[in-house]
Design a protein around this nucleic acid. Sequence first.
RNA 1: GGCGCGGUGGCAGAGUGGUCAUGCAGCGGACUGCAACUCCGUUAACGCCGGUUCGAUUCCGACCCGCGCCUCCA
Length: 468
Amino acid sequence: MLQIYNTLTKQKAPFKPLVEGHINMYVCGITVYDYCHIGHARVMVCFDVITRYLRSRGWNVNYVRNITDVDDKIIRRANENNETVEQLTERMIAAMHEDEDALSVLRPDQEPKATAHIDEIIALVSTLIEKDFAYPAANGDVYYRVEKFAEYGKLTNQNIDELRSGSRVAIDEAKESPLDFVLWKAVKPGEVSWESPWGAGRPGWHIECSAMSKCCLGDTFDIHGGGPDLPFPHHENEIAQSEAANGCAYANYWMHAGPVRVNSEKMSKSLDNFFTIRDVLGKYNPEVVRFFLARVHYRSYIDYSEESLKEARVMLERFYQSLNGMAGYEYSKEDADQVNISDFEQRFNAAMDDDFNTPKAVSVLFEMVNELNKLKKSSEAGAAAMAHKIAELGGIIGLLQQDPDAFLKGDDKEGEVDASAIEALIQQRTAAKGSKDYAESDRIRDVLAAQGVILKDSREGTSWFREG
RNA sequence: GGCGCGGUGGCAGAGUGGUCAUGCAGCGGACUGCAACUCCGUUAACGCCGGUUCGAUUCCGACCCGCGCCUCCA
């Protein structure tokens, strides 16, 4: 039984879809004015793991993640760069897709862009005005009348009075109340804009998600997800817009990923303490980055550090050392039954069913590695079956799909010994060993070790890998 | 100030009212020319103070500490 922690109810509850076997999920995506950082990567990986797992269990998942391609920051950045908004956003969308591909994040089924849904946005704002939940102001903006929506604040337990007194938002003369937020922004000189019943302008931030989710998934859908800084005000405002306009529940389950931290502070644009995905991919194998993010429960914080990345690398090495060389062996269903594959698989699924507990699921995978290493000595077919299942289950988290030998050897990087030089030194060492010249063979091993290359002698000869 | 989340062995990180998390590191052993990989064994923890209970790291309350949101941010 799948259990999901729901931000709305603040507890874990059994998941019940609107339509049996089917899941409609909307996740807030990226505002594309800059390269994605590791915090963005976390949200991408988190919902990618969730989608992969649900599909592996037979759910039919329709995964929508939007792209915000017009807003203040985009306009400012495009001006700074002397390019159009569209040039900037297309560049950043391409970069985002490159980053996702590197991290083995599968594309959502739909990636709606705000600028492609202006008509739907205008229609939604019109409905809100008709229903008296919004008003055009003297300055050309259209605002949402927050105090008209009785349930405002139900996602994050805010109450209107507290918000009003604690409001840090500067009083805007055009608004009826400081809590009101903008649905449609009147154009300023030099900005991109679209015609509307309230004059030329562009959508506010929150309205696009209400419009696009309605367009792609309908008035009510199953899961709405996003990053840790979105519950308030963004998701609160989405609820207010959609439920007021549609007259029915918006999303049934709200899921929020935890933050990535640096030195105990949240990684964020405003703190300027972020590392972009491409920075980090320059130093670590993409799978290491993915594992770094996926080995912690999705709702917990993660501390970003070189040590954490290295630890993820070392953990993956254990998997790949064990899997290495197992691909070629045959096995039957009986072989798999004999080594209790289904018990492990059940425990893996039970962990994932419990609010997507990846740390626990990974621990099951490690138990399987231990079993595999033992089976290598007793049952070739049993070991092959185990190895196959480890890779299969790892694949659900988006891991363990590389060729083990390739992962362990790594790419030849600038300034490091390349593979052919390593092979040549190994041949010299083998010759030295053959004549029992251990001083020489140890010397060669030390030379390689000094460059991070570790040798492994076995009956079949000497193999090597690069340590993390 | 309001609303939330969290404090687990040297580190990372799950979980449970009374037997093992898991990985790294450490220690002892096996394998090895020596290593590496691997295997076997092993050490060690639940912020603080009360309460409930036969028994609490796990439930309840207070306290201390850390973090997030309340302004654009995933």
